[in-house]
Write a protein that binds this DNA or RNA. Structure first.
Lengths: 149, 149
DNA sequence: CGTTTCGTTTACGTTAACGTCAATTTGTCT
DNA sequence: AGACAAATTGACGTTAACGTAAACGAAACG
């Protein structure tokens, strides 16, 4: 649904298609529902590494994968700094094996956190449902009172 | 494991036990691992309603139930304002039936949020596990290289 | 009775995660 | 060329959720 045509150098007439697989900042904003400020902020925090076409940022496929993980991490309540460490695991390249062991341990703790969170979430959902059934009964009683009046 | 003796008025000798079922601010801090500042802050935001013994706050059983819900809500990434609304559902008394319907609707949205969050959490856990298996294989390869050298 | 030991109020400070605004540059259209 | 839109770089502002420090009162203790 979005243009894959980006990074056209001067000299292109617009009919040629350069599927460089990069996206402009605006396309990123529309696709992921974030603001330009957010993307620049994430770059400043070294969460994203858009390449440059002159001054302008071009976001690669890798940046988009990372952004998806960032936004998901945020929904789980992780800080950007924690997320940055996790991104290292997802985007580890072969020349960074020295850090792999440390990253792996971090991921283990993170996984434990998430599973604990899941257990608690299940419990909370159960309790909320119980409360809502109580509320539903109350509501039913009220509407009955009113029809009787 | 914590003292249930609180709110003793002057004139008590310490052998009598007044199981008023209230806790001092310090006991609350130890029990729930929060700071006094946090408890006062929650009171100022009308999340807790400790009674007073002169100047001092005494936290009731109701306050403790609410605090548990507050801390859990925070772990799920909800704001204090959102949590305050949910507390209305859990601590609704019969004289507040006018607001019940509104609160119920809020709870329905909240429940939907939580179930969506659970689904996403399951997915994230699965992906993280996959990545960690990849990482584990890498680590195994490295240690093999080193033993061969 | 002096002194530590909580607890209280008031008020200013802090951090994360951006928002917002201004000045400027660059590309695009007519 | 002129105008307009879109992007960039500072730089300062904002909100939530507390932290921290000062100044004070009350209670407990030797």
């Amino acid at each position: 649904m979005y243009s894959q045509v980006q990074g056209n150098k001067p000299g292109m007439n617009g009919t040629e298609i350069m599927t460089t697989d990069t996206m402009s900042i605006r396309d990123m904003c529309l696709t992921f529902d974030v603001t330009p400020r957010t993307l620049r902020f994430y770059e400043s925090k070294e969460l994203l590494f858009p390449v440059r076409d002159g001054q302008r940022r071009l976001f690669t496929k890798r940046d988009r994968a990372r952004l998806k993980l960032i936004l998901r991490g945020k929904r789980f309540g992780f800080s950007l700094e924690e997320i940055r460490q996790l991104l290292d695991l997802y985007h580890m390249n072969d020349s960074q094996e020295t850090q792999l062991s440390k990253t792996y341990e971090f991921a283990e703790r993170h996984l434990a956190d998430m599973e604990a969170q899941k257990a608690e979430l299940d419990e909370a959902i159960g309790e909320l449902k119980t409360q809502m059934e109580w509320g539903a009964k109350k509501l039913a009683a009220i509407s009955k009172d009113q029809s009787a009046a």
